[in-house]
């Protein structure tokens, strides 16, 4: 089996296990928040922040994006964030619908 030159760099198993433990802790934090009797918008925002943090950690370390060339990061991630920001524009309509309900 050959080893490619670009895969000789990267984190050690210790880093992987540390990241794995950190992700499990974040999941635990999410479960605790779900039962903290927060208002729905606050809970949603908190869970989204934690989910984005988990995704970022997984992207950087598990998927090795931190160890790839910056061109790969800048080619993929900003455009994806742009797509999600555009999708964010639907929230005012959803909130308008919720306020149109009869009391």
């Amino acid at each position: 089996m050959t080893t490619s030159s670009e895969s000789r760099h990267g984190p050690t198993m210790r880093v992987y296990v540390t990241v794995w433990i950190a992700l499990l802790c974040l999941v635990g934090a999410e479960v605790l928040l779900a039962y903290a009797h927060l208002r729905t918008p606050v809970l949603l925002a908190a869970l989204l922040v934690l989910a984005v943090l988990e995704a970022g950690v997984a992207l950087l370390f598990f998927m090795h994006l931190r160890y790839e060339r910056p061109t790969l990061f800048w080619s993929l991630i900003p455009v994806l964030i742009f797509v999600f920001v555009l999708m964010d524009h639907i929230w005012p309509d959803a909130l308008r619908l919720s306020s149109l309900r009869a009391p």
Binding site: L23, V27, E30, V31, L33, A34, Y35, T40, L43, L44, L47, L48, L50, A51, E54, A55, A58, L59, F62, M63
Partner: peptide
């Protein structure tokens, strides 16, 4: 496979925990 895991990081809190 890591991407599949990453997606679950969003599905579990948004679909399960938000509806607990």
């Amino acid at each position: 496979w890591h991407f599949v895991d990453l997606v679950w990081m969003f599905v579990f809190p948004l679909v399960y925990l938000m509806n607990a």
